[in-house]
Design a protein around this nucleic acid. Structure first.
Lengths: 205, 205
DNA sequence: TGTACATCAGTGAACGCGCGTTCACTGATGTAC
DNA sequence: TGTACATCAGTGAACGCGCGTTCACTGATGTAC
């Protein structure tokens, strides 16, 4: 048996950034933490050393850019919220029609949650003992209230937009969280579930 | 300053079980694991040593009753499913009226989830990389399909009971998971959300 | 183009900790007499 | 009632591991000449 990779090792060593470019490692670390979130779906499973390993750097190098482990994770979570918010905002702005805009938001929400269930879980299924609320979540919820309000106004529907938005959010969260957590079961198609949601909540055109 | 507890230590040492009674420690360990689930809401946070510590026993003692760490946790999760199932079944059987029975199930579901959010999370918000489906979950879902079917029949409603049961489950899961994960936000009252659910899904009398 | 050098991106050894698991053991208990 | 003893519930030290964090350091890079 020849060992063909004896000369060319499988892991090419990382090239260090040039002086002045060192801050790029900071972004690499945040990206790596995001990738680990996607893979593990549990923020507690993301160690400082695993992030460094993912980038190909020693654990000590992390301390050049972040105060400590929790600071790194906090920033990575904030970046995930920004991703999520951007996806939702783009979907919302994709149409002037309230119904199409709402529907696009729902699809973007579901797509984000099912494409990256781990990352979604980190954002929305936080630990019981977490204390602080993320501003990203509130901002995303604001987008939803706005979209629902436009539909209710269009319908001349007197329901409370906040309450209906909570209904939409709890339901859609339940759909993606259960489907994402138990992909082995044969759920109805997501599109059918979204149709069922907007019909039941009378948010159809 | 006197130290009044110098003679009577705060932690009274555990009395060992008598010969022949040793199996009782097994139940104590499962109970302790359940208590830690309630507290942490994350099965990965429950170490073998923490369960032993909770009971007041050395880590080694666990091995007299369980093969290893994962066997202990698996049995503890199974016991939690049994708890949940029993609560749901009792609520279902509490009335012959399909609507009252359904409503009682909903309230029992919510009560379980909000009283013990950690335990609920362990059961329903499993990790992304978990492989096996629990039979307890399927059995509980069977109860729900049955309850929904009775209402649809009573209504002469032709909808697919499975689909409607999935709608109920996803929604109610979303409600308790979001409310449980973010208790700091001012959600509408749970009773109002349950009313909204049965109205929107036309499961009212 | 060639070389000396200061900068600063990144390293590697070490620490104390909690973990799962093993091993040989200890000593409280109920029972037989 | 009193004592010797076998049983077996539970212990404590030890292991190798990955973790977060610290410390003193190294050596690749771009630049000045």
């Amino acid at each position: 048996m020849a060992t063909p990779s004896a000369v060319t090792p499988t892991v090419t060593p990382r090239r260090r950034y040039a002086p002045g470019e060192g801050d790029r490692l900071r972004q690499d670390l945040l990206d790596a933490a995001g990738a680990l979130m996607v893979r593990h779906g549990d923020i507690d499973a993301i160690s400082l050393r695993s992030v460094a390993r993912e980038v190909g750097v020693s654990a000590t190098a992390v301390y050049r850019h972040f105060d400590d482990h929790v600071t790194l994770l906090r920033e990575a979570v904030d970046a995930s919220w920004a991703d999520f918010l951007a996806a939702l905002a783009a979907a919302k702005a994709s149409s002037d029609d309230p119904y199409e805009s709402f529907r696009a938001m729902g699809e973007a929400y579901v797509a984000f949650a099912l494409d990256r269930p781990g990352q979604y879980r980190v954002l929305f299924s936080n630990k019981v003992d977490v204390g602080v609320e993320s501003p990203g979540g509130l901002e995303a919820f604001g987008l939803l209230i706005d979209a629902v309000t436009r539909i209710l106004v269009d319908h001349g529907d007197g329901r409370d937009p906040f309450f209906v938005a909570v209904q939409v959010h709890t339901w859609i969260h339940g759909i993606v969280d259960l489907c994402g957590s138990h992909p082995g079961l044969d759920w109805p198609p997501v599109a059918a579930m979204l149709d069922g949601l907007s019909t039941a909540l009378r948010l159809d055109p």
